[in-house]
Design a protein around this nucleic acid. Structure first.
Lengths: 235, 235, 235, 235
DNA sequence: CATGAATGAGACTTCATTCAT
DNA sequence: TATGAATGAAGTCTCATTCAT
């Protein structure tokens, strides 16, 4: 009776049976196993944090025995690292290529980038990774560094490029690039964190944030501010 | 909109509590044991997360024996809750009274609130609590609820009041109140999280964020946006 | 129901009881515990070897819980080392002082040394240590070195001194000192090993060796050889 | 005392066995798998002891998969037994036939036997078996008994026969046969043990014993003793 | 026959918690 | 009150063994 993980792809639900119809216990699936395990581990790590996650539970969610985890990953640490790497790398690539070739106003580009980021990263399993990293950065400095180098770095760089483009084209005012970029990221990362902690997945949710509306509002403010500018004198 | 609207809703209890949640009637400054323990526990919980924190280490930092912890707090869970409650309540009170009586433009008030929040909450150890809550919200729904009710609720309420005041006074445009407030909070909460995880305390830090500049930049954007408005047509 | 170890001193049989006569589970005996644990561990290690020994069994023989072992010894390795050190050091001192001041013929001195060694070391628990060392030398090079330095070294030195004395006094012929000393030790060490493995403690014993007679025979041969020397011409 | 008395007692089977103990009728040199496994296992068992040896490592050294071990040997225990049996039987046969037909003085015969034993058994991998047996005798009483019956027994018998021959021929004095024989064996067995544990194979070696010299010295002492005999009184 | 894959049983070790003092 | 000592429960990890191919 494998408790079905919310995060497992449907393939894992097809349990093999022997010709007599009895479920087969020892299935051989060298190829698929590691991915299934990583998927299960992601769910549990995001849910419980590193220290709180139990190999037992990961195994159960992956539908394998606890010992099998150690066949593929030498230790809990290694499994954790694999979870981060696996999920990050894939998503990031997809995101970057989406944004790369955009033609249009800088405002639209910023809006596109933010919405896309949410669609392709923040709202996916990978969004949970952000929470994980922030939780465990101190315990896994190596991973924190990895996240900096491979995720935040490129992300910030990309967004900075967008802003620079806007300034160069006379669409944006002269900006404190670093802080502005961090500010943009902060909205998005916060959204991940908040959802993981208080949001959809948690009954104790606070004021339900509707991500798309929240992001759009952030974009509006970012681009236009909230103060009424005294254009009136224009009459 | 009178100053009155800036006041906290009645839910937030002002009376001081001892770390166990019992109201505490002017206890002598003596018998500071529980407070010392809570202080030590805060540091360790923030550093390691709930599951990763060990009672041994808390005891050592508090300068007492491990068994003594159990004299004051029936369990690790209870100690954790006490940590959250104690730190939140105290800080929040100070912050609220600071902001409550402000007279001046709404832009300045927003700026004041944000900077003050950082000074009096975010940058203090209480800032670590935010990280804790987000980490452990799922494992301690009770605490998450408490945080919602006692912390986020009043905070959002306060900020909403500020915005409403601005709109009423014709200083701010008509806003999506909820999302705008969440956006403001997100910058600040994110700053806490980031600092705890990647920031000052961690050698693996990324692009060092300078909090005050970051906040000021957020304020500037919030109030004015980043786009160059084509007032030109005004001729 | 603590299975009584053959090697535990009688003191450990006195289990404490509360005033109502019920056996007391949690006894506090800071002073005695480590010794009791080491004693139990010695028995189990000698019996099973390092890898084969189970902390569970050591704990049971020591009459404590498994966790208690780790209160006193950080790891199985450390416990093992403590066992070796504790047992060796004590015995060795006793032995050396016994032999040191002997006055008499060298033959008698050799005989005394061998018999004493058996009495005070070989036949005691410490004799089991020799087996342990030889078993685990490769896995614990550190301990093997310790044994060489602290046990074999002094032992060989002592015996060499005895032989030199005999040669100097014209009682012994000119000898291959090193090999002769090793030969003497070999009898004694072998006796330990044999007893531990095949001897008294093991039902599958082979030809029961009677230690004292065996040693005496070794002494006789050592001193006189077994060949008939052609003294006959003496008529 | 004819040569006949030097012959082995009937218990020692001369026919070759396969590692599983089944008599093996001129199997083709092909299918050497089991032998390779046993050879690898011998090395690992001697190195690590029974409990410390891992099937994984044996498999790797044998160049087969772990599962293959279980094709030939039902369990680790069985493999261990096969290792002992195989190695002992083979070597012993060679040794016995070497010594059996000797003609000459008893002193020379003793010397020959001891040197040959070292050459053909002690110094070979079979020497490691002795260590193994002594290590694991308690855990494998069956094997200990086997060793007694098949190895020590014949060995002692052979040596006793040699000594009896010497006494009968007036070359040796009347001896405590059992203890003298054990004494001789002890030198040789000790040499095995010492080498395995502290000797050549181990960097932590103590005073490097040179086996041939050691044995020769033992022979010299055995035959002549070390005391200067006071033939003087012969006057 | 051989093996890659999987696992049950059990090892060492940790840690929140208890208890007698 | 405070604590040194002790431990049950549970965690990570290992390894001989099994099974389908």
């Amino acid at each position: 009776m494998t408790k079905q993980s919310l995060t497992m792809p449907p393939t894992s639900t097809i349990e093999p049976h022997d010709p007599l119809g009895r479920p087969l216990k020892r299935t051989r699936r060298k190829e698929a196993r590691p991915n299934e395990i990583v998927a299960a581990a992601l769910a549990v790590f995001v849910d419980k944090g590193f220290a709180g996650a139990r190999m037992d539970e990961i195994a159960k969610q992956a539908g394998v025995s606890k010992a099998t985890l150690f066949v593929y990953f030498p230790s809990k640490d290694d499994l954790f690292k694999a979870v981060v790497r696996t999920n990050i790398i894939d998503r990031l690539t997809a995101f970057q290529s989406t944004v790369a070739h955009f033609q249009g106003s800088s405002g639209d580009l910023i809006a596109l980038a933010m919405h896309k980021w949410w669609q392709e990263i923040g709202s996916t399993q990978a969004g949970g990774i952000s929470k994980l990293i922030i939780q465990e950065a101190k315990n896994f400095p190596e991973l924190a560094a990895f996240y900096q180098t491979e995720v935040m770095g490129p992300g910030l760089h990309l967004m900075q490029a967008i802003l620079k483009r806007g300034i160069a084209r006379g669409e944006l005012r002269d900006l404190d690039l670093t802080n502005t970029v961090m500010g943009i990221m902060s909205s998005l990362l916060f959204l991940c964190l908040w959802r993981q902690a208080m949001g959809v997945d948690n009954p104790v949710c606070g004021p339900a944030i509707e991500p798309t509306a929240f992001i759009q509002n952030q974009i509006d403010i970012l681009l236009s501010g909230i103060e009424l500018k005294g254009n009136p004198p224009c009459v």
